[in-house]
Design a binder for these strands. Structure first.
Length: 482
RNA sequence: GGCCCCUUGGUCAAGAGGUUAAGACACCGCCCUUUCACGGCGGAGACACGAGUUCGAUUCUCGUAGGGGUCACCA
């Protein structure tokens, strides 16, 4: 089994594209097959500098490895279409010789006017097949004079064409709705319609996987395969990934690309996991998968045929899920830049690692880290009203009292670790006859200066260290008028 | 507009004639708890509509409606 991902380098890699690549990869890999990358750069006008690198980088970051493709090579190269021009020319000529295609010298003006009148008449077809009726001498004369021309495929005018698609089943269309499509453009480049057939055949692609926008042109490709006498591949068309009920997710509408999501704090593996589930569902109810696990579980009949809306909230949850499943070192590796950013790189390695431990279960997207932990580096200016907490049974008055008690305790504490401090404070509360929270809440507040913090009073104290903790406690006491 | 395709809670989705119509996100409540998270338990919430086939349709058929795609020298 051989599948291919055939993007055109016209911009950045968007989510729908990436999902197609993923499925193509998974379909091949779950069957022990090969996954091929082919660049479809046959539109010179839409070519975007750097777009090819975006494709390579994205595949690299996600771990989707191709067995054959640009740079890595393979037995069926080159894998960039602009380097295969001679092939398309040769095969187009073959079709002309067989009478399956013909030269067309029509000008753009003539084509435009045909299109206009067809639109007015409500005709399905635009082209009137004018050049098909040119006699041989005239064609040759035009060719000799270098009159610009294209090569068109001659479509049958009656009958129907049926093809089978793995997800959509049998689809039949009437041949008379098919236009004599252009195979070779006047600039010598093939159209997608032609190049994909030639290349898929030459590269021995067994399963053609692509978006379902190609569903309606697939009969044309089959006609091409038959004209050549080539074997028709298995088709697997995929429903689109939507932004909402009405519009597809696309870079054009400013929707997030893979790269954008990574910059927003999403892990490549979580993105991959999430999009795998947009249009495919596993046999059981497990939803968290690594790429390797997907390779094992993937199966064709889990593919669905209706569009799926991209839900950033679920991706966010899933990202958190992947974060929680990392071991601390792995998490620290990805979180460290964000911790440094939030603390201006003012903390020690040891402190940062402890912070990582505190925030791992509280992080869904990496970019939320800096804001959550900046108080470790610098005590923010805070309103003393946050000492008042109904559920903790604290008010301004008892906060001051217990803060002083807490301060005295911390000052004498020998073992400045969270557990030890926590035990000590519990004893203190028992001795004072108050609730644990009546000491801990004011302490947490004084130590952090924020209403909500990752970690409680003693965890923060441990990271801050004795000196800084006492300083902050003192400041809190003075703020409360003590 | 012609042709093709799609339609289960707000979202992702399982189910393919007889089910209390799974599960997940989000939402709500409770529990756990040194705040917040995490975790645990529970709740609310769906078969687009109309015919037909059938003892019985979410499931099959046909219509209707809604949505999408496609009709390029773009892919």
């Amino acid at each position: 089994m051989r599948t291919r991902f055939a993007p055109s380098p016209t911009g950045y890699m968007h989510i729908g594209n990436l999902r197609t690549a993923l499925y193509e990869y998974l379909i091949a890999k779950s069957n022990g097959g090969k996954f091929i990358l082919r660049i479809e750069d046959t539109d010179q006008e839409r070519y975007v500098e750097g777009a090819m690198d975006a494709i390579f980088n994205t595949l690299e970051m996600t771990g989707i490895k191709y067995d054959e493709g640009p740079y890595v090579g393979g037995d069926y190269g080159p894998y960039i279409q602009s380097e295969r021009l001679h092939l398309y020319k040769k095969y187009a000529q073959e079709l002309v010789d067989k009478g399956e295609a013909y030269y067309c010298f029509c000008t753009k003006e003539r084509l435009d006017s045909l299109k206009k009148s067809a639109a007015e008449l409500g005709d399905a077809l635009n082209y009137d097949r004018h050049c098909f009726y040119l006699d041989k001498e005239e064609v040759e004369k035009n060719l000799r004079n270098n009159v610009p021309h294209v090569i068109r495929q001659k479509m049958p005018t009656e009958g129907t064409t049926t093809f089978h698609d793995v997800v959509y089943g049998d689809i039949t269309i009437e041949n008379k709705t098919l236009e004599d499509q252009v195979l070779l453009k006047s600039d010598g480049y093939p159209t997608y319609n032609f190049a994909n057939v030639v290349d898929d055949h030459l590269m021995k692609i067994t399963h053609v996987v692509r978006g379902n926008e190609y569903l309606s042109s697939t009969p044309k490709y089959n006609l091409l395969y038959s004209a050549f006498g080539w074997e028709i591949p298995t088709y697997i068309h995929l429903p689109p990934v939507m932004k909402d009920q009405h519009t597809k997710l696309s870079k054009r509408h400013g929707d997030a690309s893979f790269q954008d999501l990574v910059e927003r704090g999403y892990l490549p593996k979580a993105i991959l996991n999430y999009i795998a589930l947009l249009g495919w569902s596993p046999k059981d109810t497990e939803e968290i998968f690594t790429l390797e696990e997907l390779e094992k579980s993937f199966n064709l009949d889990g593919l669905s045929k209706s569009p799926a809306i991209f839900d950033i909230e679920k991706l966010t949850w899933m990202n958190g899920e992947h974060i929680r499943r990392m071991d601390l070192d792995e998490f620290y590796d990805v979180a460290r830049p964000y911790i440094e950013k939030g603390t201006n790189s003012s903390l020690t390695e040891e402190q940062m690692k402890k912070i990582a431990g505190l925030i791992q279960k509280r992080t869904e997207v990496l970019t939320e880290i800096p804001g959550k932990i900046s108080f470790f580096a610098e005590l923010p200016d805070y309103d003393i009203q946050i000492y008042v907490h109904k559920k903790m049974k604290t008010d301004l008055e008892n906060s001051l009292t217990y803060l002083k008690e807490g301060f005295d305790y911390l000052k004498e504490a020998q073992d400045f670790t969270s557990n030890s401090l926590y035990e000590g404070i519990k004893e203190l509360a028992a001795k004072l006859g108050c609730k644990n929270s009546q000491i801990l809440w004011p302490m947490r507040t004084a130590l952090s200066g924020v209403e909500v913090s990752p970690g409680g009073a003693t965890e923060i104290a441990e990271i801050l260290g004795k000196e800084e903790s006492l300083k902050r406690m003192e400041y809190g006491i003075s703020k409360l008028g003590g």
